[in-house]
Design a protein around this nucleic acid. Sequence first.
DNA 1: CTGTTAGCGCATTCAT
DNA 2: ATGAATGCGCTAACAG
Lengths: 330, 330
Amino acid sequence: MATIKDIAEIAKVSRTTVSRVINDTGYVSDDARERVLQAIKRTGYIPSEYAKSLRTKQTKVIGVILPKISTETVSRMVSGITEELSHYGYQVLLANTNLDPVLEIDYLKLLKARQVDGIILVATNVSDALIKEIHKLTIPFAVLGQEIPGVTSIHYDDYQAAYDITRHVIKKGHTSIGFIGVPEADQAVGYERKRAFIQAMRDHALPLNEHWIQEAKFDIDSGNEAIKRMFESRDKLAPTAVIAVTDRLAIGAMQYLKERGLSIPHDIGITGMGNSELSRYVTPPLTTIHYHYKTAGEEVARIILDKIDGKNNDEKKSALSYRLIERDSL
Amino acid sequence: MATIKDIAEIAKVSRTTVSRVINDTGYVSDDARERVLQAIKRTGYIPSEYAKSLRTKQTKVIGVILPKISTETVSRMVSGITEELSHYGYQVLLANTNLDPVLEIDYLKLLKARQVDGIILVATNVSDALIKEIHKLTIPFAVLGQEIPGVTSIHYDDYQAAYDITRHVIKKGHTSIGFIGVPEADQAVGYERKRAFIQAMRDHALPLNEHWIQEAKFDIDSGNEAIKRMFESRDKLAPTAVIAVTDRLAIGAMQYLKERGLSIPHDIGITGMGNSELSRYVTPPLTTIHYHYKTAGEEVARIILDKIDGKNNDEKKSALSYRLIERDSL
DNA sequence: CTGTTAGCGCATTCAT
DNA sequence: ATGAATGCGCTAACAG
């Protein structure tokens, strides 16, 4: 591997001059520049980013901590992040926790050690320990997907979205409405969406049947089981519509309903949230909430970049827009 | 940010000693070690990976160049890669080309500049310029998803898989079989799969109708249009089964068929390839080929790691296993 | 316009 | 068992 020193020798100039032509900074005679360029070309020399970073204290790398790359939500966010960052010569160092909360903290430290210029956390469950660690951070930081006190974040307005879809279901004339949620440890998807559902029901003076409020995990099968519990409760009553907090859950529920011979939306309506690709192609297509995940990735990238540039260093909160997509499942 | 020098001063030892306790190398008295550890704890000191890399010529970072992160295939591969690498303390630097072939070469250089310990290319269309650039590379390198002469790669045995599924369709009794492919510039999905289809048909002495061999892009709508062209050809003949080279294409085709009032698989059978999550949940569930994408990611990570360790430096080829998944669409 | 000097933070001889 | 000295590859004053 050639170094700046080699180039300097070949071109018969000092290392400084080489540095100048590389970075296009300061005056260099055409003659010297030419010789340097030639030398670079001949040797295939590429300046070491590491050595450069050591001097400049800038790595042009942003660390992204995420729970699991192979989900649509996250991969779309990452897509938005990488795309936006690439316009400014930044790259992404991935830290995939695979849903292990301990790793989140480990990676935070690791990224610090790597002197990344900024860190983006794609969050699900945020532990107190993590929040503490985040507050100790001195480099630009932002959270995507959840709201953390005192920290810049872009979150989805889960409460409002869930409230909207619940109201939508109610407006369609349903009064017996079931709900499939996820554990409340997940602030956004678990807690907020459930809270919104309950509030919307109350605001419309509709009854809440405890059997009709089920909790599932995040996978499709889990949705199937959750609605099964709903239908097999002793009182033999069943809702006329079910709101699931994710599309996958809704799709799992649809499977059960179909197996049971129920027609959607005629016998029972169902809605999801997330507008996953799946939701368009199941039968019938799912009514759901579309979040702009990729846009969120782009936006958080821009925020980090701003912070790096020194502007906009204060805490900043924003909620990403969403819209209700009406299809045929309700 | 504290440095090794600060710690040395606080602990009243030399930087060398600090380095020794950090890396657990050489002799250090318990007393000195204790003081160093205390100092580290107090200051929250984290050694700079950059400075370390500059000395050791090891970055513990693997560059991954990919065409688009937000597809199921790629994100599963990346998931396998990051998971495997993390076991050995390596991280992934992402380079998302967004399908721009020029960027592939740019990123190759960038990763070199960042002195990554290895590079994994998740490939689609591989240009000659890229191949040339790859051969100039001196760092460990491997390709995932396509086969490149003289380069270590894990590819899918697209020919065999497509041959198998064609034979499967034939065995089901079909003789009038259509095909929806993609441009042959894509060696694996475009060229190989088509070649296999044609060969299988010939081997079984079945006729090839040119109207029934259509080319589409990669998206769902494109599959829809492709089969439409098939059905609207002048001779008014239509196949009794259609093989699409991706699930998305198959799903697009299914939409058209349904709109046309055709029953699947009764009136016409259809198959995909890829076993995307979608394929399980469309109606009817799609018969397809399942590739072990994540496993491939893990495997290529292991290969790169081996190369870094100096073992197994020669070119190595392997094909990943797949299996036919029979569902209800055929 | 160009070169000299210094130092970023660390690991590694080589002495002691 | 410990430290002094050196250099990895680069940029940034500071002189000339």
